[in-house]
Computed example of a mutant assay.
Amino acid sequence: MISNKHPKMVGYSQEDSLSHSQKLIAGSVAGLVARFVIQPLDVLKLKTQLQKKMPEGKSLNLYSMTKKILTEEGITAFWQGHVIGQAHSILSSTSQFFIYEMTTQLIFSYSVDPKYKSFLEFMCGITAGSCCATLTIPLDVIRVRQVLVKQQYHGMLSGARAVYASGGILAFFEGWTASVLMLGPQVGITFSVFSLMQPMILSYLYKCNSICSHPKANAHKPEHLVLASSIAGSISGIVSKTITYPLDLAKRRLQIASHRPQERFQAPSTSRNLIKCTELIKCITDTVKVEGFFGLYRGLLVTVYKAQATSIVMFTTYEFVCFLLRK
């Protein structure tokens, strides 16, 4: 007789047979795959967020930006900063999933009123996001600058030296406040929405007629996990990114505060006339003054594409690797 119980896909579950080490592996693989797939979108997003408007008051659209990058730097430019990006993704996704699993295990090992479940999952997500932001911000600063001027920040070690030379040890933590304020709620919203949506979708997919005596007997089919995770991941990515986007924009402009272009390193046209910030609140208020309220959402479209792709690929890969490890 097949049990109708199946392990909770993300977060702690007593029925889950996977160890923390196995979930670390799943998180690492999810990060690797997601980073490779979304890297070109990330390059477009960064350059869109940081470039000043042209004299006529217009910004480059995605097509024009893509064309300029291809013409001036070649197709490999879309994977600039990819190696550091991979290290960032492994550390980011692994720490997010691991800390989320650990905190949910700690909380739900006690008797918890079901009505507080969603709120507690959200708080666990905030904890995971805040820890992740602190761990990954130095790599993120190097990666952002490497995308802008690869020669100046070439390689991880030389890039780190260049960042240090620009502003000392504190330069590695430029944008940290915005990153924590953004990633905490963002991860909390992402996991909460995903945890809400995925079981609903799975319940719909596993709905049986009167002949079926075990409604969830096929709950472990990989194609169902992929579909449910893709839809839930897509929705959670859009919701979380849209809510926290102004902080994302400010973070990128803060991360290049100490960056100084050097004549011996030729910067492409898409990496010139950059918008820099030194203070979070002033960055947001100045953006509204100069670009209007919707200036806080410049680059949102490509960010939504990126968020969808990242959430779908990361959650789906994570779930599928967990499925394979359970087998």
Rank of each mutant, 00 (worst) to 15 (best):
A77G: 04
E101C: 11
P55V: 14
L91V: 13
L46C: 09
G31L: 04
D113L: 01
E72H: 01
Q86W: 06
I75H: 01
T94A: 15
L50Q: 10
L18V: 09
L41I: 09
S21D: 06
S21W: 08
L91D: 09
T71A: 10
Q96V: 15
L24R: 00
S64V: 00
Y110L: 12
Y116V: 14
L18G: 06
K53V: 06
D42A: 15
T48Y: 02
K23S: 03
S109F: 04
K47Y: 09
K52M: 11
A87I: 11
M65D: 03
I84A: 03
L18H: 08
E72W: 02
G31T: 02
V43Q: 06
F97I: 15
L24M: 05
A77I: 01
K58M: 00
F78H: 04
K47A: 09
Q80D: 10
S92Y: 12
S109T: 11
D16M: 00
F97W: 13
L44E: 00
F36D: 07
F108G: 01
S111G: 11
Q51P: 13
L41S: 10
S19R: 08
A30L: 09
L91R: 12
G74S: 10
K23N: 10
K45C: 05
K67N: 00
M54G: 08
K52E: 14
G31W: 02
I84V: 11
F78S: 02
Q105M: 06
L44Q: 05
L106I: 03
L18Q: 07
K67R: 06
I90M: 15
S111I: 15
A34E: 08
K47I: 11
R35I: 15
K58T: 01
S95Y: 05
V29Y: 08
S111W: 14
P55T: 14
Q51Y: 04
L62D: 09
N61W: 02
E72V: 01
E73T: 06
H20A: 12
S64N: 07
S111N: 13
I38G: 09
T48C: 09
K68R: 07
D16T: 05
L106M: 03
A30I: 04
L50T: 05
S21I: 15
W79E: 02
Y110E: 15
L70C: 04
G31F: 06
I75R: 02
E56H: 06
L24S: 04
Q86A: 11
G27A: 07
Q96D: 13
K117R: 14
V37T: 12
Q49D: 00
I90F: 14
Y116L: 10
Y100F: 13
S93H: 11
H20G: 04
R35V: 15
T94I: 12
G85C: 12
E101Q: 13
P40L: 11
G31D: 03
L32V: 00
I107D: 05
S109M: 06
Q80K: 00
S95R: 05
G27L: 05
T94Q: 15
F98K: 10
S89A: 15
T66S: 12
K23P: 00
K52Q: 14
I84Q: 02
K117A: 12
F36A: 13
R35Y: 08
A87Q: 08
Y63V: 15
T66H: 07
